[in-house]
Design a protein around this nucleic acid. Structure first.
Length: 710
RNA sequence: GGGCGAUUAGCUCAGUUGGUUAGAGCGCGUCAUUUACACUGACGAUGCCGAGGGUUCGAAUCCUUCAUCGCCCACCA
């Protein structure tokens, strides 16, 4: 018997060694599979944010994807799992800004080029850390094809897409309302905004003959349009366009009556004034009626000269003073103290978003969404779990144009020139535009960067080398996209739209959403709560195999998962059990020569028939993406049938005086061990590979490329 | 305001298309045993499957109403 089995299983001694054997042998590379008949199977790894360490969610991603990939590889597919790292634009910049803050610095004091270089260094350091952690989880991805979202080749593809969309009229530069965070000094797309319910005061103000209500009196300086519903009988004596002179915050003004159906007659008095520069609804009304728009608040949240005596004050301080002044002028009708409403905030810092009109780049989404809807509604893309399909359809049907300009340095620079006179933009990949085509004005380089999702939305084809590479032709469309449910709009839907736009094909056939990983009590993990579970500590403590199968069992797609240390510990016991099963079987079958004997009817025959149905059941679960079921079946079988019953009973049979009974039993034990190792391998790759290396009479030297049982 | 999901053992959750006595892990109880494995084994307890109504020979599963919780979306100042 092999010496190794004299000791209990030790993950620390085996895992790194085995991973190295796989990697050095090139087994992760699909080119290793030289069978010309082999069909491709592809998963593109969601590029990991290179701004920290692997968290528990990553652990789940790596585990589930590795399970799929190992399963398909064993089934003989030409299997590619392409790893990648994400510069993660704004996300990383925020992480880096926190670091700067600790050092007493701020990004606004650092020259952009220098800041970019600093963040690049930071990212590269994190990258190597992240990559070694991905290896630790056992991910059998093809490192020779690794990509980074800022690689030249990727950026080139993103630029070509941008140019193509500009030429097709799908990208435009527009003076439109954007969601502006006064703290981070950048605009966002609608998805980066978080709604928050707050209780504020609602002020009822006298505006000439009307009473208007507002929760933001500090925006009211420029309000010279008073709007009501055309069907509102209370105000039928006022006509559209009618001028009314009235006394306002800083003196007399002339207001204009506007009739618009956007007004809710039920709300307040049914009359409001509008601030088109700082409100999306108001902007819409102003656009419809061709009204003037005026900026009241600057990018840092301070009032502009239009506010008269209040100019230069921050809006947070000015509000009370303005109300005070209005009160002395007798213009405050009443104040509702408990006004419950929803405010839009920055998803990172919770600062209230200040809508601003800005000249930025937008993507026209309707035409892209329509194509995506066609494919989704005809079920060309399978959603797991299914209800994500409904959510996606609803979002796509109500999609708004996408602001892709970000005022941060960390990202892919937008390859465009901006007119210094009229603000118009032109895409310029070759740096040859000199004058504005609209007005002839001087051009300057656009200093903004792309929303990181604009580039990662192109990841499936960009990472494969679209359009001419062999890899793109072989592996696209990919088979499965596996990612977190909260990326359904941010990333998944955009990949579908951009993939269809650029390649004419869906980027993946199946999209699998895993749930969020929570702590043992079901609480969201967060640094501030101090309940973050580091997957590296769990693998260190219990072994990677225990961590992997513990993450999978009891985890259905889309449902969040409570990660308890005890659970992982339980599967460490399972690993030990497997080890001891192998130890028993191998030491009791040493004389067995590998031949297939006549089976003992009613005993070994029945046992093997039952095992056959386990193979069928597990394979079916794997094909249906029910990894939790497959793993649970294997766990139950290996422990409570194979170990507790079959092996216990075999102890008697192995002592039988009839040699054919002994041989039959030995054959059966070896057969079940060998094939159990195969079935378990996607879930617990290290221990199964280690035991495999001690198996006599096996079909391949390494388990990773042996065939899945039929 | 609209949409989606959940509710099953003390805890965390399975339960595929409706079909015997509703399952697993952890935890709990009794007993056994130095064994391939104490990271063990055998046995066991705990369930009005959120509530009401309906369809059916038969419902945890399908329909309906309600309750509670959670999530997502939304331009009522």
């Amino acid at each position: 018997m092999n010496d190794i089995f004299l000791k209990p299983y030790n993950p620390k001694e085996t895992e790194d060694k085995i991973y190295k054997t796989w990697e050095d042998g090139g087994f992760f590379n699909p080119d290793k599979n030289t069978n010309p008949e082999a069909k491709p199977f592809t998963i593109i790894m969601p590029p990991t944010n290179a701004n920290g360490s692997l968290h528990a969610g990553h652990g789940l991603v790596m585990t589930i994807e590795d399970i799929m990939v190992r399963y398909k590889r064993m089934q003989g597919f030409k299997t590619l799992w392409l790893p990648g790292l994400d510069h993660a634009g704004f996300e990383t910049q925020v992480v880096y800004e926190k670091k700067l803050e600790k050092e007493g610095r701020t990004r606004f004091d650092i020259e952009p080029k220098k800041l970019y270089e600093e963040i690049m260094d930071f990212t590269l350091i994190n990258s190597s850390n992240i990559k070694s952690q991905i290896r630790k989880i056992g991910a059998s991805c093809d490192w020779s094809r690794e990509k980074f979202t800022l690689d030249d080749g990727i950026v080139k593809i993103v630029y070509k897409t941008f140019k193509k969309m500009f030429d097709d009229g799908l990208v435009y530069r527009g003076n439109r309302i954007v969601s502006w965070c006064p703290k981070h000094q950048t605009s966002f797309s609608d998805l980066e905004i978080e709604d928050e319910e707050r209780v504020d005061k609602l002020y009822y103000l006298k505006y000439g003959p009307f009473i208007i209500s507002t929760s933001r009196p500090e925006t009211k300086f420029g309000d010279k349009y008073v709007v009501m519903h055309p069907a509102d009988k209370r105000y039928s004596k006022y006509t559209n366009g009618q001028k009314i002179d009235l006394e306002w915050i800083n003196g007399p003004i002339t207001a204009t009556v506007i009739k618009d159906e956007a007004i809710d007659m039920e709300f307040g008095t049914g009359v409001m004034t509008i601030t088109p520069w700082h409100d999306l609804v108001d902007f819409g009304i102003a656009e419809r009626h061709g009204l003037e728009k005026e900026q009241i608040i600057d990018e840092k949240g301070k009032l502009l000269p239009i506010a008269g005596e209040f100019a230069g004050q921050h809006i947070s301080k000015a509000r009370a003073l303005i109300i005070e002044k209005l009160q002395t002028k007798g213009l405050v009708e009443k104040i509702d103290e408990n006004y419950k409403h929803v405010v839009r905030t920055c998803y990172k810092c919770r600062t209230i978003i200040e809508p601003q009109i800005k000249n930025q780049w937008f993507v026209k989404m309707k035409p892209l969404a329509e194509k995506a809807l066609e494919k989704i509604n005809s079920n060309e893309i399978r959603y797991i779990p299914e209800h994500y399909k409904k959510i996606t359809v609803h979002w796509l049907e109500n999609i708004m144009d996408w602001n892709i300009s970000r005022q941060i340095v960390w990202g892919i620079p937008i390859p465009a020139k901006i007119c210094t006179v009229c603000g118009d933009g032109i895409v310029d990949l070759d740096n040859k535009e000199i004058k504005c085509k609209k007005c002839g004005g001087e051009l300057r380089q656009d200093t903004d960067t792309f929303d990181t999702w604009f580039s990662s939305g192109q990841w499936p084809y960009a990472s494969l080398g679209f359009p001419d590479s062999k890899d793109f032709k072989t592996f696209y469309p990919t088979d499965v996209m596996e990612t977190a449910g909260d990326l359904v709009f941010f990333w998944v839907s955009r990949m579908i739209m951009l993939g269809l736009y650029n390649t004419g094909k869906i980027p993946f056939k199946t999209v699998y959403f895993h749930g969020m990983v929570l702590d043992a009590k079901g609480q969201k993990m967060s640094k501030s709560k101090g309940n973050v579970i580091d997957p590296m500590i769990l693998t260190e403590k219990f072994g990677t195999d225990a961590f992997r199968i513990g993450m999978v069992i009891g985890n259905t797609p889309g449902t969040s998962l409570a990660l308890a240390e005890d659970k992982i510990k339980a599967y460490k016991h399972f690993a030990n059990k497997i080890w001891n099963i192998a130890r028993f079987v191998l030491s009791n079958t040493e004389q067995y020569k590998g031949e297939k004997p006549e089976l003992i009817l009613g005993s070994d025959k029945i046992i093997l028939d039952e095992f056959q149905s386990l193979i069928v059941g597990v394979t079916k679960d794997m094909d249906n993406f029910k990894f939790y079921l497959a793993a649970e079946k294997l766990y139950g079988y290996v422990w409570h049938t194979f170990a507790d019953k079959i092996i216990e009973e075999s102890k008697v049979k192995l002592q039988d005086s009839n040699a054919s009974v002994v041989t039959s039993t030995q054959y059966m034990l070896r057969y079940i061990l060998e094939n159990s190792l195969k079935l378990l391998h996607p879930f617990m790759p290290f221990i199964t590979e280690e035991i495999w290396s001690h198996m006599p009479h096996k079909e391949t030297k390494l388990l990773i490329v042996t065939s899945w049982p039929k």
